Simulated scan of single mutants.
Amino acid sequence: MSDSFAVYMRHGAPRYCRELECWIVTQYSDTRAALLDSRLTFAPLPIGAAPESAEWRDFAGSIYQWNALPTLAVPIVKEHLRPAFSLCRIEREGPWIHEIARHLAQSLVSQGGGDFKCDFSDSFAAEAVCHVMGLPQAAGRYFRYWMPGSTETHESSEQAVRLFRKEYAHAAHIRRLDLAGVSSAVHVDDRGCGDDSADDGVAAMAFTAFFMISSVLTTGMSLLLRRSRQLARIRRNPSLISAMVEEVLRFDGPEFFAPRIAASDVEISGKTIQGGESILLAQGLANRDPSAFVRPEVFSMDRTTSKALLFTGSPYSELCATMTRSSVEIAFEEFIGIMPNLHLAGEILSSNCRPVGNRVVQLPFRSH
């Protein structure tokens, strides 16, 4: 008999999940300690057989999505990609990111509205990532096929990554691709084939950055459109945008889980996790733990402490933190500033791949 999905999605001691063949950690104190434990290493989650029930299938689908990314090439990431996402780099590209957001927002104003996720979030994230990373804009077309959904999307996700790498390798073959002012160090042979590790690092970084930016933008706007008073506060005082983005990340951040594998035996709250076993650190639930946050179920821009567990899903997630925060703040500033009469224009559609919060897939709005 399969355990109920809800059994695992509550705060308590770690539990072993037979459906996913891994441990699930949900409490804030346990999750924070585990994230700092060097015995727990980054790794794609080796999920077992596809769960039978619909709730487990949708849930597992959101994890399969991340497993479509290439194997983590941590040394390549640290050496060649970190400078591309430095604060200095992002600040230098700020005017261009402003222009990307302004152009998209003005286009939607002329149309009277649209689908915020498809017409703004996804488009903005794709253009911003390609620009900052120095990638050909044509590569951005594949990002949209890599958004979380059911387990059936896993194949299309893998295909999207393969096509992206092909586009990137082709560009590098035509000219030595300058990755955000930093040599990509991709060796291209006579056939136009790049070094696999470097190509994988670029692909995983680009897809992760796109997902982070698009998700935070869409989730943030859906929260604001359902909270007119908080949206009005931001219009009166745009300096609140930074605090709002931090609360979006805590309340319903893009990464619900941080997958890890135990290199050796680890004890968490009296439970022994053996070396080689997989773990899902449920940071999305930990960020709503009442032992760590006052009224965690409430979306509030007035929190004075920022101790949410963020950007821990992979080395790529950590590198995306600065770009995600900066570009999302710019996008909100431009979008809300251009649309003073912004309001919801229909039902918000969400997928059921998360136990807490929403993965918004459609967000209709009107600009006047």
Rank of each mutant, 00 (worst) to 15 (best):
E152P: 00
R89S: 13
H154V: 08
E158L: 10
R82H: 15
E55H: 01
P95R: 09
W66M: 12
W66Q: 10
P46Q: 08
S110G: 04
A60P: 04
A139E: 02
R102C: 10
F143R: 01
E127S: 05
C130D: 10
F59L: 14
G149I: 00
L135A: 05
F116L: 08
P75H: 12
S53I: 08
V129M: 11
I90K: 09
H98E: 09
A50I: 02
P51L: 02
W146F: 14
E127H: 10
I100T: 13
T71D: 10
C130Y: 02
E99G: 12
A49H: 12
E99R: 11
I100L: 11
W56S: 03
I100M: 09
A105R: 10
S150T: 02
L69R: 02
T71P: 03
Q65Y: 00
S156T: 15
P70G: 10
G48F: 02
A60D: 00
S86D: 01
L69D: 06
Q106V: 00
Q137N: 03
P44Q: 11
V74I: 12
W66E: 07
E91D: 07
A54V: 07
P95F: 03
L45G: 00
F124L: 04
Y142W: 14
A54C: 04
S110W: 05
T153W: 04
R57N: 13
Y145T: 08
S86W: 05
T71G: 01
H103K: 07
E155W: 09
P51M: 09
D122H: 13
Q65R: 06
G94D: 03
V74C: 12
W146L: 01
D122V: 06
K78L: 13
V109D: 05
Y64R: 15
E152G: 01
V129D: 05
G112C: 12
S86H: 12
G149W: 00
P136W: 06
L104F: 02
T153M: 11
R82E: 14
G112M: 14
G113M: 05
S86Y: 04
S107G: 15
S123H: 10
D115V: 13
R82M: 14
W146T: 03
T151I: 14
G113I: 09
A138F: 02
A43P: 00
E152H: 14
I90A: 09
P51F: 04
Y145P: 05
A54T: 14
F143I: 09
P148D: 00
R141H: 09
G134R: 04
L69A: 08
H154F: 15
A60V: 04
F120M: 04
R92Q: 11
D115Y: 11
H98G: 00
S121F: 03
L72C: 01
E93H: 12
P70Q: 06
E152I: 10
V77H: 02
Q111K: 15
L135G: 05
G140I: 10
R57W: 13
E79V: 06
E91F: 11
S121D: 10
P95G: 06
R92C: 02
P136C: 02
A139W: 01
H80M: 07
P51T: 01
V109C: 11
P83H: 07
L45C: 02
W96F: 13
V74R: 05
I47A: 12
F143Q: 00
P95T: 01
V129A: 10
V74L: 11
F143A: 04
G112R: 08
F59S: 02
Q106T: 13
